[in-house]
């Protein structure tokens, strides 16, 4: 089967090419400027243009899909990727399934697996869908020895949307997806100052600090790049220490890949205790200093 693969991101592109190189013959379409020629795509098409946005990119991809006889379209899951998949699904009248972790073709039917109910469950579906978006971080990119053919495609059509300004964000200071040890703070810390003790524990463990959705997005006590959860970072450290985190499904789905989970929470009925290897029922402000002291011994 011949697959059209798109992502605006280099990391997602190389991940998808690694993940599916034994299943499909793939051409990569991307707006990234990074070198993606050695990840197993037959062709790499670089999309260029003055005002690239989801609408004119989708229209060009639809045209290429029809002209080049692809069987399916695989798109990296990002805000842009999901938008493009929804537009492509309408332009080409093809069904789409987003945020999948698995794509298994068999006899014209494709089986997919994706999170459902906010990450509480995984749903396996079979369909004749032709468009899929794939979650990031499913695989570490592996280069191949052969090189793809490089092509350029310029998109002349203007977007209906105008970019009137670009606001630089502070450079990312942390990559939680790559951290070995993460100490995460939840609503249970109660105040921003509570992060100090979380940081101390992280320092002792040589780990990074993460946070739940309320801590990062509602209270802004931590930056959004530290948010662990289905809508934030999906992490897989060796050790994940959840402090004052109740364990809502959204959060669990983001840290389920952790090898060991330790939970500290004063509510013994908190759902996090069902998702941990070791737990302590107690006030984190009493427990953590003791834990730090014990670690220093």
């Amino acid at each position: 089967m011949k697959a059209m693969v798109f992502s605006e991101k280099a990391d997602l592109s190389s991940q998808m090419l690694t993940l599916f190189r034994n299943t499909f013959e793939m051409d990569l379409y991307t707006t990234s400027n990074e070198n993606l020629l050695n990840f197993g795509a037959k062709n790499v098409f670089k999309l260029t243009g003055n005002n690239l946005y989801v609408d004119n990119i989708s229209e060009k991809l639809a045209e290429m899909y029809k002209n080049n006889g692809y069987d399916i379209i695989i798109i990296g899951s990002s805000a842009m990727g999901r938008e493009i998949s929804s537009l492509l699904s309408e332009i080409l009248h093809l069904e789409a399934i987003t945020e999948v972790m698995k794509i298994e073709p068999k006899d014209g039917i494709i089986a997919t697996e994706r999170f459902f109910y906010g990450g509480k469950t995984v749903i396996r579906e079979e369909s004749e869908a032709k468009i899929f978006t794939v979650l990031p971080g499913l695989v570490d990119p592996q280069p191949v020895n052969s090189s793809s053919t490089e092509n350029n495609i310029s998109i002349d059509k203007d977007s209906a949307i105008k970019v009137v300004d670009q606001i630089e964000k502070p450079k990312s200071s942390v990559n939680l997806e790559k951290a070995d040890i993460i100490v995460s703070a939840g609503r249970g810390i109660g105040k921003k100052e509570g992060l100090a003790v979380i940081q101390q524990l992280a320092d002792v463990l040589h780990g990074e600090v993460g946070g739940s959705r309320p801590v990062c997005l509602d209270y802004h006590w931590l930056s959004e790049e530290r948010q662990v959860g289905l809508s934030g970072k999906r992490v897989k450290p060796k050790v994940y220490v959840a402090c004052g985190i109740s364990g809502q499904v959204q959060h669990i789905a983001g840290m389920r890949g952790s090898r060991m989970v330790i939970a500290i929470n004063k509510d013994k009925n908190a759902p996090i205790f069902n998702e941990c290897d070791y737990g302590i029922v107690g006030d984190l402000y009493a427990v953590i200093p003791k834990l730090i002291e014990a670690m220093k011994k």
Binding site: E95, I97, A111, F116, Y117, K120, T121, V122, I123, R124, E125, E126, S127, E128, A129, R256, V261, A263, K268, F273, N274, E275, C276, D277, Y278, G279, I280, V281, G282, A286, V287, K290
Partner: peptide, 23 residues
């Protein structure tokens, strides 16, 4: 729609769940 649900279930949690009430 050609979509059919084959199953929809929670991933099995393999966690040890050793929880201490004695801090």
């Amino acid at each position: 729609s050609t979509k059919k649900v084959i199953w929809n279930r929670a991933p099995k949690s393999e966690r040890k769940r050793i929880v201490f009430e004695d801090v």
